[in-house]
Design a protein around this nucleic acid. Structure first.
Lengths: 212, 212
DNA sequence: GATAATTGCAACACTGATGTATCGGATAAT
DNA sequence: ATTATCCGATACATCAGTGTTGCAATTATC
């Protein structure tokens, strides 16, 4: 019985957090992981998980909603409707990257969402589309670009940046990279750069650089 | 006993194909689908699948190898080492898109590959990296762009293009879109366009188009 | 310190999926 | 036409994972 509105003791809520964090860690590496493995990773008994979450599905649902809530927060924190588009989009990208790397499993597409998660997702997608439309009006994005394709590419770049290997320092393959602010900024820059400028040379007259 | 080298009767080989095709269809929509569901979709008895494939894992392995073989074929068919880079890369993109949309499940990342599939994958990745490096030398790709990031974006664009909703005609959501040559070409153009030119305006002096 | 909640542990029932074995009828190959 | 092979059907054994219950020990809260 996970969400039955009863006052939980402090340690109980701590357990819930620990469980969700462990589940995120384990499931992100093996989506088919068992409750036993999750429990072990969380340092609790398997029955404790079932005490707090009605079922495996419920656990995942709750994690998904929590993750999407954080995403929505991250987007709103960038003040997408008041700040200048470029700044807002960069800020939103950075914020989302931070959240996304902490919810690698919960935020991966495993079929269409349902319930509140779907609602939040639709909301976020809407704001994303709005930003793209504004970007087109501003001239930052080619007006003849298909907005849907732009959005899909943007989201793909986000996932790629959030879950790929680190770019700067080719360090040991840590499972939770513990991204620093500098890392996040570099990734966000990379994503926005790729999206806005693309890989091609900015000036067509420089596309044939002959060796001097 | 899947790969034990015995001469199979014609109908047996037909069964194997049917099973793999059905498995691809079913698993691409539900990766946790059971052998029973696969069998039903293939129009055969569950025991027949076990007759041809030692286990569920073996089935998936064989499918994965088959898919990667086709990918390698598709890449080689573009003559990446002899044709001019731009043409070869476009051709390879189109070919791979066609293959990829037919092996949606087998070609999705479910952790690191092993065995022959891993070998083929490494080979293909190598050719991809080579193409990117040549693209940089040619001036089609900015020389200061991180080749690794370029590759990851390219692969992400491929998946996005192959598995997303169709762009041109907003038709009914067919499960196997049965891509026409025109569709493939449009998608390939889109991918290469996005990769090479990016979304930004080609000429920086046009980035502030004031309304006339 | 009294009380109520939380946890670990052990045991259990239940379900669903996998894989095996066997058989008779159907089908391709010669 | 004969033969070897393949298939569907049924039954079975096995196993892993899920979810539940009860109880004793621990711990937060008042």
């Amino acid at each position: 019985m996970g969400t039955t509105g009863r006052k939980l003791r402090a340690d109980a809520e701590r357990s819930i957090r620990t469980i969700m964090e462990a589940a995120e860690r384990v499931l992100s590496e093996n989506p088919g992981a068992t409750m036993e493995q999750i429990a072990e990773a969380a340092g609790v008994a398997r029955t404790t998980i079932h005490r707090r979450f009605a079922s495996r599905e419920a656990l995942i649902d709750i994690m998904t909603v929590a993750a999407w809530r954080e995403i929505a927060e991250a987007v709103d924190a960038a003040r997408p409707s008041t700040a200048p588009p470029q700044v807002a989009m960069y800020q939103a990208t950075a914020n989302v990257l931070r959240v996304k790397s902490g919810w690698r499993f919960a935020l991966t597409n495993r079929g269409p969402l349902s319930g509140e998660a779907a609602r939040i997702e639709a909301d976020v997608i809407g704001k994303c589309d709005l930003a793209i439309r504004r970007g087109q009006q501003e001239g930052a994005i080619r007006p003849d670009a298909d907005p849907l394709w732009v959005r899909r590419v943007y989201l793909a770049l986000l996932t790629e940046a959030a879950h790929g290997p680190h770019p700067g320092h080719a360090g040991p393959p840590a499972e939770t990279p513990a991204e620093t602010d500098a890392d996040i900024d570099e990734l966000a820059t990379r994503v926005m750069d790729t999206l806005i400028r693309g890989f091609g040379p900015a000036r067509p007259e420089a596309d044939r650089p002959r060796e001097d």
